[in-house]
C-alpha cells in the first residue's frame, strides 16, 4: 500500500476514523472554480478526492450529477483538462489521494496507454469506471494496476456471495460499496442493511470498504462511517455548488464557501464528533 490511497487509509485506521471521500465534477461550473474547490477540500477535512470526468451519457447518474457534467462540458472541460486540473492541484497538495470517476469512452478515445501515462504523471492515484465490470478487466483494470494506478471496484446489492470473489479479484485501493440499486442522488437505504453488506465484503478482502450513493447529511455520514471504512458524498456537494449558480450556470454566490461549509459538517459526522469537536461516537 505504498501509494497515497494506501497511506491515507493507514493513517485513518491509526486514528480510528472512517474516511470522508468527497466528489466533485471536474470543470463544474468552470475550470478555475472547480480547481479552487478542489484545493479547499483537504483544508476542510476531506480525506480523498473523487474527481468526476464529465461524459455526455452518464447512465448511472441522477439529475444533479448529469447537470454538473453538462455544465462542465459546456464550459469546455475535456479529459485532458481534467488531468490538467489534477496537475495544478498537485502543485499545492502532494498528499491527498485523487481518484478519477466516470465512464470508459473518453479514456478509450484518449487511448488507454497514453491515458495511464498522463494520469500517473498528473498525480492520479486511482480510477472508478462505472461501466467497466470485472468481465472487462483487460480493457483498463489490469493495465492500470500495472501502471501503478489503483482500480477501485464497485460492489452493489446485486453482487452476491458467488460473484463477490470475481469483483474483488483485481480490485485495489479500496472497495466502493454502492448502497443501493439505483443512480446517484437517490435516497439512502436502511443503514442496517448497508452495515451487513459492508461486513460481508470486509470478511473477503483486506482493502478498505467505503460506501457511496445516497449519503447527503452529517448524520448519515456518521451512521455509515461507523459501519464502514469510508463514506463517499457526491450529489450533496454537487448540489451545493449548483445552488450558487443562476439558471444559466453563472456563479452568483461563493461555491467554495458553500462546499467547505457542507464538508466541514460532514467531517464532524464521519469523525464521530459534534460541531464543537466533542466525541459523540458512543453517544448515539
Amino acid at each position: 500500500m505504498n501509494n497515497r490511497i494506501g497511506r491515507r487509509f493507514e493513517e485513518l485506521k491509526a486514528e480510528g476514523s472512517a474516511a470522508l471521500i468527497t466528489y466533485l465534477m471536474g470543470g463544474d461550473p468552470d475550470f478555475d472554480t472547480s480547481l479552487a474547490i478542489m484545493k479547499a477540500l483537504p483544508e476542510c477535512g476531506s480525506d480523498v478526492i473523487e474527481l468526476g470526468m464529465p461524459f455526455s451519457d452518464p447512465l448511472a447518474d441522477g439529475a444533479v450529477i448529469q447537470a454538473a457534467g453538462q455544465r462542465a462540458l459546456k464550459g469546455g472541460q475535456t479529459l485532458k483538462r481534467t488531468l490538467q486540473l489534477t496537475r495544478e492541484f498537485r502543485q499545492v497538495d502532494d498528499q491527498t489521494p485523487v481518484v478519477l470517476m466516470g465512464y470508459f469512452n473518453p479514456i478509450y478515445s484518449y487511448g488507454v496507454d497514453r491515458f495511464l501515462a498522463d494520469a500517473r504523471d498528473a498525480g492520479i492515484d486511482g480510477l472508478i469506471i462505472v461501466d467497466l465490470s470485472p468481465e472487462m478487466d483487460q480493457e483498463l483494470c489490469i493495465p492500470a494496476s500495472r501502471a501503478g494506478i489503483d482500480f477501485i471496484r464497485l460492489a452493489t446489492p446485486t453482487t452476491d456471495d458467488a460473484r463477490l470473489p470475481k469483483v474483488l479479484e483485481n480490485a485495489s485501493g479500496f472497495v466502493y460499496y454502492v448502497s443501493m440499486n439505483g443512480i446517484t442522488g437517490n435516497a439512502l437505504p436502511n443503514p442496517v442493511d448497508i452495515a451487513a453488506a459492508v461486513a460481508r465484503i470486509q470478511k473477503s478482502t483486506l482493502l478498505p470498504v467505503c460506501v457511496g450513493f445516497g449519503v447527503k447529511t452529517a448524520e448519515q455520514a456518521h451512521v455509515i462511517g461507523r459501519a464502514s471504512d469510508g463514506v463517499v458524498v457526491g450529489t450533496a456537494i454537487v448540489s451545493a455548488i449548483a445552488d450558487t449558480l443562476d439558471s444559466t450556470g453563472r456563479v452568483v454566490a461563493d461555491p467554495v464557501k458553500a462546499v467547505t461549509n457542507l464538508v466541514t459538517e460532514l467531517v464532524c459526522g464521519v469523525r464521530q464528533l459534534d460541531r464543537r469537536g466533542r466525541d459523540v461516537s458512543t453517544a448515539i
Binding site: F104, S133, P134, E135, M136, L154, P157, D160, V167, G182
Partner: peptide, 20 residues
C-alpha cells in the same frame, strides 16, 4: 464467450446490472 464480435460488443455495464 465474452460477448464479442471481433473487438466489438462486450458487456460494458455497471456492476448492478452484471448479475442480471
Amino acid at each position: 464467450e465474452q460477448g464479442m464480435f471481433g473487438k466489438y460488443g462486450g458487456r460494458f455495464v455497471p456492476e448492478t446490472l452484471m448479475p442480471l
